[in-house]
């Protein structure tokens, strides 16, 4: 046992003194994510180390938001015809788009590209910046502001002077606040497409009714071309987000999965396509998304850093 005080909260049915960490709701020995900035613009880094980040695309002005994908082939805004998927929608410079840290600074480049003659542009791009280091070593001290501040330390550092990353809780910064968790299941029936039959979509959705587009996990985006291990099987979205997409989507090619939010709902949509030279059979499948919707608003912008 450590020789410093620890605050633990157990999940229902468990004893915080003896249960495994996985059965706790909270432990002051853990670092909780601390958001110091949300922005739609580039940010000149003054931290002295590289912060971790999360990014969300705003697909168009009528609110849909989705997580980032760093792929060569990526679907564009909802108002473009790339969602017909006759051909994959190309992003012009995937290496440079999205949220990146170049040198020391956070660079935001909203996606744009084309789909066979039609240019498309995302409406905007937002980044959540965390004190959690991506690279480099955080400083060891931080000025304590006057006024009410709630700090909970790990016990081995002085909460009054430590850098906030080292505190278990720190009211000077935002964090990810869970609004709703649940399971979203998308069921697609067995179907055999006739030659060149029109595509079919299958959608599952869950209401959150927050009135704005909330941050959500897992970081699933739109335009995920399902590779051969996923294109006709049931699977869990959360467990497969590390995979690269199939090379092509659309007719004769891979199905597409889209995940996005707007101000009332979280959506998951599957696109299935026919072949133009033979029939194409799909199995009955279930795609499962274990979602977490946070109170955090994707397109809120703030800066809580004082260095």
């Amino acid at each position: 046992m450590p020789n410093h005080p620890i605050t633990k909260i157990a999940r229902k049915g468990f004893d915080a003194r003896y249960c495994a960490d996985k059965d706790l709701s909270f432990s002051s020995e853990w670092k909780s994510p601390k958001i110091f900035k949300q922005t739609s613009k580039n940010w000149t880094n003054i931290l002295g180390y590289l912060p971790s980040f999360m990014g969300f695309r705003q697909l168009n002005s009528s609110v849909p938001f989705t997580a980032l994908n760093n792929y060569e082939y990526i679907s564009g805004g909802f108002d473009t015809n790339c969602f017909t998927h006759d051909n994959p929608a190309l992003i012009s410079y995937p290496d440079f788009m999205g949220v990146s840290i170049f040198d020391q600074d956070v660079i935001l480049s909203p996606y744009y590209g084309y789909t066979w003659g039609t240019d498309w542009y995302d409406e905007n791009l937002f980044a959540l910046l965390f004190l959690d280091p991506l690279f480099g070593t955080p400083p060891t001290t931080y000025p304590l502001r006057s006024g009410g501040v709630y700090l909970l330390g790990k016990g081995d550092v002085d909460v009054r002077t430590s850098f906030p990353y080292d505190n278990a809780m720190d009211s000077r910064f935002d964090t990810l606040k869970i609004f709703k968790t649940g399971t979203l299941e998308l069921k697609a029936p067995a179907k055999t497409f006739a030659v060149s039959e029109a595509y079919q979509t299958y959608t599952a959705e869950i209401e959150h009714n927050l009135g704005y587009a909330p941050v959500f996990l897992p970081e699933a985006g739109v335009g995920w071309a399902l590779d051969s291990s996923l294109d006709d099987d049931s699977f869990i979205v959360n467990d497969n987000l590390g995979r690269l997409p199939a090379d092509y989507a659309g007719i004769n090619s891979a199905p597409i999965l889209d995940v996005w939010v707007d101000d009332t709902k979280l959506y998951m949509r599957l696109w299935r396509f026919a072949n133009d030279w033979s029939t194409r059979a799909y199995s009955e499948i279930t795609i499962t998304l274990y979602y977490t919707i946070f109170y955090n608003k994707i397109n809120e912008e703030f800066d809580l850093l004082e260095i």
Partner: peptide, 10 residues
């Protein structure tokens, strides 16, 4: 251009 990107990335 040298920088940090989220994984997966192509």
């Amino acid at each position: 251009l040298n920088g940090w990107r989220k994984v997966p990335v192509a």
